[in-house]
Amino acid sequence: MKNPLIIEDIEFIENNIMSIRSKVGFNFQYYIDEWLSEKTKFNFWAFFLAPFWLGAKGMFEYVFLYCILTNLFVNRIPSLHLILIVLLPIYFGFTGDILYFKKIKSEISNSTGFSVNGLLGICLVIAIQIGTYYLIA
């Protein structure tokens, strides 16, 4: 799949490399290589552990979407629930790295100093999953 980042995004990466390094931290080089490559790669961890990967990266809007959609249909329409728990991780596997870039770019552009620790993000995902399950189901 062709990388959807445009020239302005590549210039943003080159001009803000140190800020990106401090925001991304671990696996910085992997993400830079991914964002600057011509083709996007499939992110196995974003696929295999979708809500936890999203939480560890601080993308809680997608965690809420994932948890609400999967829990909304768990008891009502089980076949749709099964489709969602297969399709959503595939979507995040293919687009996760680009979504993560957009989050990092937004944080740097808006000068938000708030960043979520990976372990805290995973704990929040568990809380969100349990909460949405009991509220919706």
Rank of each mutant, 00 (worst) to 15 (best):
N43K: 03
N71F: 07
L54M: 02
F52T: 07
M59S: 01
L80K: 01
F42A: 13
L54N: 10
W53T: 03
W53D: 11
F48P: 08
T40W: 06
R76P: 07
S79R: 11
N71D: 11
G58M: 06
A50Y: 07
S79G: 12
R76N: 14
L49N: 09
G58S: 09
F64H: 14
F48V: 05
F64W: 05
F47R: 03
C67M: 12
F42M: 06
I68Y: 00
V63A: 02
N75D: 14
P51Q: 00
S79V: 10
V74P: 10
K41A: 13
F47D: 12
F42R: 13
L69D: 00
F48S: 12
G55T: 11
F47G: 08
F42W: 15
G55C: 10
F47S: 04
W45V: 12
F64L: 11
N75F: 14
A56R: 01
W45C: 12
Y66M: 03
C67A: 15
V63E: 04
R76F: 11
K41C: 15
Y62T: 04
S79H: 09
Y62Q: 04
C67S: 14
L54T: 04
Y66V: 07
N43F: 09
M59V: 03
F64S: 03
L72C: 11
E61Y: 13
L69S: 01
L36D: 12
F60A: 05
L54R: 05
L72K: 08
T70R: 04
L54A: 05
W45F: 15
L82P: 08
Y66D: 02
E38H: 14
T70N: 14
L36M: 14
F42S: 06
L65M: 12
C67K: 10
N43S: 15
W45G: 11
L82F: 15
K57S: 09
W45H: 12
S37Q: 12
L49P: 01
N75K: 14
S37I: 04
F60Q: 05
W53N: 01
S79F: 12
N43H: 02
K39D: 14
L49A: 05
E61K: 12
S79C: 09
N75S: 09
F60Y: 01
F52K: 05
P78R: 01
M59W: 01
C67I: 04
H81D: 05
P51A: 08
S37C: 01
F64D: 07
F73Y: 05
M59E: 00
T70M: 01
L65E: 09
T70W: 00
L80S: 00
F64Y: 04
L36N: 15
L49G: 08
E38M: 13
L82K: 14
T70Y: 02
R76H: 11
V74G: 05
Y66T: 00
L82G: 14
V74T: 13
F73C: 04
W53F: 08
Y62E: 13
A50M: 11
S37H: 03
L69A: 07
W53S: 04
L80C: 10
N75V: 15
N71L: 06
L65K: 07
A50C: 13
S37N: 00
L49V: 13
L54Q: 04
L80M: 10
G55F: 02
E61V: 09
G58A: 06
A56H: 06
